[in-house]
Design a binder for these strands. Structure first.
Length: 627
DNA sequence: ATAGGGTTAG
């Protein structure tokens, strides 16, 4: 959108600096009443009085009504009041721009801003800061230079607004340049600069600025905490949250707990998540839809679908996001029946599914090998709901077909896609080749990826597993040296378990835990159970996930997931569920071992791997060995 | 008056 340059004349300027028209006693009383109105009902009553007294064209009263209505979310009322205001002034215009911007209706906000300039109304600094909020990428800078031309040079509001534009468009360099040149700083401008850093992964710079701030309010703590949570540093997010409570004695609000809950979900820290949930309830923080969705997601990522469902059922007025979240929750646990039922429930409730809904249900189908159902849903998505499939949807379909052994069909889908297949799709196909021992297709794909320079640590491992499955150790060694020469490191397997609000992490063969001795004697005891188990046979040839082949046979016993489980067994009461989170896929051998452990100890083991959950109960896994 | 928030395949 271009900003017209019929600049307001001097006339506009003088209008803005005129003193506001004096209010009579009645107007004064009414305006105080408007400001005191806390509920829509109060406001409607005052509004009715105002109309009866024939004051419906009053600029000042209407400005206050506009502001009050838009803070209650009644945009329509705000618009109709604006429309009946005689000669709206800069305040009326700015308020109507602001109400649209607040609700994310940025296009409409910009239209009003342009209309305002065209009607010869002279904007003030606040108008610019509000308009900048809605400015599309291209007109952010022209708007700023317009503000300069009109004399708002080095105005803190305008500059902070521009910083926000840079933050949204990802222009960190320009933001930093402007920020360094600003001759005054405020809490808000520093927070905006932090946001800019945090949104673009420069979390260290955000923290540097945070440490420099003379005063910190709840918003700036929130930026820091959510910055950590959204950049994959959930532990740091929790650490900052604790500091916020203990050192700064700051009262967290609903935005703070939102970020913290998301961090708990990432770590899989159920106890901590439950603690935050009760903290929310004890501190009268209202569980709105955003917060409810975050809680639901946290519970399903921490392995407690029961709690997730409880939160889901307590939310009235569900939107598409929370429905999606519930469906994805069931999907990642492999409960595809529940996922599909929830989808039906959603349709019956009159909710329109979106692209993310379909990622959820397609994913559910692929986790349980529901090929026919999944294919039907994929085609229905376009024909019945008009949703164009994206790379994620193709990913689900390819995964579904590939894992069920329809490799040819899966490959044809990839070749026939009208979008570029990404590394995820190729990895999924490569994984399927390993699962079904298709060496030919596997090599074809690998060759393609090598040519396009797309090989990653994970794809090398998949390829190496294909060769290992067929016992081709020469090729395995060749891939290993290829990785070495290219400097590609194999991602280390790491498993964690939470006990007494502390997350304990284990690497394969880890000897660093204080309870190391007891853990290793527990492993010995487990080995005894395994020797006695008739249904267990070590699967040495499939185990190249974490370790070099030299230690292959023996090293199975010290895989990270086994250390974490052993620690769980010795540190928690008999009968309690053991919850483990692993950063890679669970190894096929450990998967068998978990079954045995669950049978011998009568414990439930819930394990989250890179892709999904496994619930081991009494010698069986919920995934039915299809994963 | 300006800054911060929920769901997405392997």
């Amino acid at each position: 959108m271009s900003i017209p340059l019929p600049l307001p004349s001097g006339k506009g300027r003088s209008q803005a600096s005129l003193p506001p028209p004096r209010q009579s006693g009645l107007q004064g009383t009414l305006s105080a009443l408007i400001e005191k109105s806390r509920t829509l009902n109060d406001l409607l009553q005052v509004h009715a009085v105002l109309l009866r007294r024939g004051l419906h064209q009053d600029r000042i009263l209407n400005f206050k009504l506009q502001r009050a209505y838009s803070s209650l979310g009644c945009l329509d009322n705000s618009i109709s009041i604006f429309n009946c205001t005689l000669d709206p002034d800069v305040f009326n215009w700015t308020a109507i721009i602001h109400s649209h911007a607040q609700l994310g209706l940025h296009d409409r906000a910009m239209v009003y801003f342009v209309d305002m300039l065209c009607s010869g109304i002279y904007p003030n600094a606040f108008t610019f800061s509000v308009a900048l909020k809605s400015a599309p990428v291209k007109s952010g800078k022209p708007l700023h230079s317009l503000a300069f031309k009109l004399g708002f040079y080095s105005d803190l509001y305008v500059e902070t607004g521009l910083l926000d534009v840079y933050a949204r468009t990802g222009d960190v360099a320009s933001a930093k340049k402007l920020f360094d040149e600003m001759d005054q700083r405020s809490l808000v401008s520093m927070t905006t600069m932090m946001t800019c850093y945090a949104k673009h992964g420069e979390i260290g710079n955000a923290k540097f600025l945070f440490d420099e701030m003379p005063d910190r309010d709840v918003v700036c703590w929130n930026v820091m905490i959510s910055g950590y949570a959204q950049n994959g540093f959930p532990n740091e997010a929790l650490l900052m949250f604790r500091r916020m409570l203990s050192d700064a004695k700051m009262k967290p609000d609903e935005v703070t707990v939102l970020a913290v809950i998301s961090a708990c979900g990432q770590i899989g820290a159920l106890e901590t998540g439950r603690w935050i949930h009760s903290f929310i309830e004890n501190n009268d923080i209202c569980i709105n839809l955003h917060l409810g969705t975050a809680l639901l997601d946290m519970y399903s990522k921490c392995g407690s679908l029961e709690d997730a469902r409880l939160v889901f059922e307590r939310m009235t007025d569900k939107d598409v996001v929370i429905w999606n979240s519930m469906i994805s929750g069931y999907a990642m646990h492999g409960f595809s029946g529940h996922a599909l039922e929830t989808f039906d429930e959603m349709l019956r409730a009159g909710m329109k599914p979106n692209d993310i809904t379909f990622v959820g249900i397609l994913n559910a189908c692929s986790h349980t090998g529901m090929v026919q159902e999944g294919q039907n849903l994929f085609y229905m998505m376009k024909s019945k709901y008009g949703i164009e499939p994206k790379v994620e949807h193709y990913g689900c379909l390819v995964n579904l077909l590939g894992r069920a052994g329809h490799l040819e069909e899966a490959y044809n889908i990839v070749k026939g896609m009208n979008i570029e297949p990404d590394i995820v799709i190729w990895s999924s196909l490569l994984g399927a080749c390993g699962l079904h021992n298709d060496l030919v297709l596997g090599e074809e794909i690998a060759e393609l990826l090598i040519k396009q320079n797309q090989m990653r640590s994970g794809t090398y491992t998949l390829l190496s597993n294909i060769y290992a499955n067929s016992g081709n150790w020469v090729e395995v060694a060749r891939i290993r040296s290829m990785m070495k020469s290219k400097g590609v490191e194999k991602e280390k397997g790491c498993s964690s378990i939470e006990l007494d609000n502390t997350v304990h992490e284990f690497l394969a063969g880890d000897m660093n835990h204080p309870k190391c001795q007891e853990i290793y004697s527990m492993l010995e005891e487990i080995n005894g159970w395994l020797r006695a188990a008739e249904d267990y046979e070590p699967q040495t040839n499939k185990v190249l996930h974490d370790l070099g082949d030299a230690e292959k046979g023996q090293s199975l016993e010290v895989h990270s997931e086994r250390l974490a489980i052993a620690f769980g067994l010795i540190s928690s009461r008999p009968g309690t569920t053991i919850r483990v989170v692993k950063n890679l896929r669970v190894c096929p051998d450990c998967h068998e071992v978990c079954k045995v452990i669950s049978r011998v100890t009568g414990r439930k083991i819930i394990m989250r791997d890179r892709n999904r959950f496994h619930h081991f109960v009494d010698g069986c896994c919920s995934c039915d060995d299809f994963w």
